[in-house]
Write a protein that binds this DNA or RNA. Structure first.
Length: 474
RNA sequence: CGGGACGUGGCGCAGCUUGGUAGCGCGCAGCGUUCGGGACGCUGAGGUCGCGGGUUCAAAUCCCGCCGUCCCGACCA
């Protein structure tokens, strides 16, 4: 088995880890992948974390179809500027010509607002707080495993509200109470929250909010997004409701999403040269037990003890690796590659002293734990691993956040070591474009709440309108 | 679509400059020794060298065309 390459081969390292940890089968065809069971289990854990918070904030799940009639496009295309609702027109399926051409969705605004136009008549119908888990297809020019694939799985919320204030608050709820909470506390990935510039905004949105994380190759990753759509889509689809005072108005809308990109984010934010490091809250296997024995008699004793340990730890996701065709050392490395937070070794030596050897993935330090205190100690190690990964990632991010004095210094810092560059911005698209042209860095986010700054624009020297954070991004 | 690189057993690669009929590591099969950090020894199976054409007594190697993949840009969760 080939080993993951070293960090300086990023993202080659990353791709190798994806393959070796058996998360996915990359590139069946351009931009596609097959997600393997272990990778899918990680996605399922992310789904649970996000979906719990979606339910807790009062949203409900439903489903809109992947394909929708072509004729739905004609109406909105003229209204929502820059928004392209189809990835392909399908005229044949199952060996037959279709009576009515279908479109494959890159996102669902089209079918959703067509539907909402029939569901919304009165202010009493609002708000609509709906969410779906689905797949979408986009012909991206430059695919990247998990981070940008032709087809991907995601969650998309689509809400409609009576007032602008309510919709704006909703966009923030999705960003902060659903996404940030799940990403930081479950994925252990620290994120900045903020607004996108007009140039980086979702087409059709009035305001785009974003979650920005830093990967270990010092590139930024957009980990989630939430849009305040104003009345743009409602107007395009002729959605109106009767207000409390009897007038007609268009509802105010939001949409928000996170995707299987988050699986890639976890790998790239936490991984080290031994492979994945998964936060316990996310790990499909939280504790792996590796029995060590030589003789048949030892095997019986050790496996019996391993079974008792697994039963004692039943409140965690425990797996006993009973394979006999590979040796213990091989298992150690394989489970480290797959990011299991805690490994337990049980052999004759441990049995003799009534102990178990515990090794957290976070530190790699072996520790002998008396069997009686094992459940308590494992709980501690898992909690420490969860918090430790978040702390390490946050510390890494702070170490790679800079305040350059001018564009030249920023360019140098982006080149080495890379990271977030914070500084004043005059607010002009010219300065934004200039930085991008010269350094490939874009403004990743502006403060969530605009606040006046003194100082000057790092690019042109004019008075700064606000503070921006630049980075090179995926 | 522009710029660069590469297609050789399942995987990763060497061989090509200077043509002579294919090799290494991993994996796989069998046997033995091993088993607390990716075991070792011996034996063995497995390849129309991306596809098509050309040059030549002879092509993985030289020439032409095509196809595909990856990297850098445009696009983007």
């Amino acid at each position: 088995m080939a080993l993951p390459r070293q960090r300086d081969d990023f993202p080659g390292w990353y791709q190798e880890v994806v393959k070796q940890a058996q998360l996915a089968e990359p590139s069946l065809a351009r931009g596609t992948m097959v997600i393997r069971p272990y990778g899918y289990a990680i996605w399922e854990a992310i789904q649970r974390a996000v979906d719990d918070r979606i339910k807790a904030t009062g949203h409900q799940n439903l489903y809109f179809p992947l394909f929708f009639p072509y004729k739905l496009l004609e109406r909105e295309a003229e209204h929502v500027e820059g928004f392209s609702p189809e990835v392909a027109v399908v005229t044949h399926a199952g060996g037959q010509e279709l009576e009515e051409p279908l479109v494959v969705r890159p996102t669902s605004e089209t079918i959703i607002w067509q539907t909402y136009s029939r569901w919304i008549q009165s202010h009493r119908d609002l708000p609509l707080l709906y969410n779906q888990w689905a797949n979408v297809v986009r012909w991206e020019l430059r695919p990247r495993l998990f981070l940008r694939t032709t087809e991907f799985l995601w969650q998309e919320g689509h809400t409609a509200h009576e007032t602008a204030d309510e919709a704006i608050a909703e966009a923030r709820t999705a960003l902060l109470d659903i996404y940030r909470d799940a990403v930081e506390n479950v994925l252990a990935m620290p994120v900045h929250v903020g607004r996108k510039t007009a140039a980086e905004r979702f087409p059709g949105a009035v305001e785009t909010l974003t979650l920005e994380a830093l990967m270990r190759d010092r590139k930024a990753l957009q980990a989630g997004t939430s849009h305040y759509l104003g009345q743009n889509f409602a107007r395009a689809y002729g959605v109106q409701f009767q207000t409390r005072t009897g007038d007609l108005d268009h509802p105010y809308a939001t949409s928000w999403g996170v995707t299987t990109r988050l699986v890639g984010g976890v790998i790239m934010a936490h991984g080290d040269d031994r492979g994945l490091r998964l936060p316990p809250a996310l790990a499909p296997v939280q504790v792996v037990v590796v029995p060590i024995f030589r003789t048949d008699q030892e095997r019986d004793r050790v496996l019996a003890a391993a079974g008792r340990v697994a039963a004692d730890l039943a409140s965690h996701r425990v797996r006993v690796d009973e394979r006999e065709d590979v040796r213990p050392g091989f298992k150690f490395n394989e489970w480290e590659l797959r990011g299991v937070p805690v490994r337990l070794e049980i052999g004759p030596r441990d049995l003799d002293t009534d102990r178990v050897t515990a090794v957290p993935r976070l530190t790699g330090e072996k520790e002998e734990v008396p069997t009686a205190s094992l459940p308590g100690r494992i709980g501690e190690l898992l909690r420490e691993s969860q918090v430790g990964l978040l702390d390490q990632a946050r510390e890494f991010r702070e170490r790679h956040t800079f305040r350059p004095k001018d564009l030249a210094e920023m360019a140098a810092l982006l080149d080495d070591p890379g990271g977030f560059m914070v500084g004043g911005w005059c607010g002009s698209e010219e300065c934004e474009a200039k930085v991008k042209a010269e350094t490939k860095a874009t403004i990743r986010f502006l403060p969530l709440d605009p606040e006046p700054v003194h100082g000057s624009c790092i690019v042109c020297g004019q008075p700064a309108a606000e503070e921006a954070a630049w980075a090179q991004a995926y």
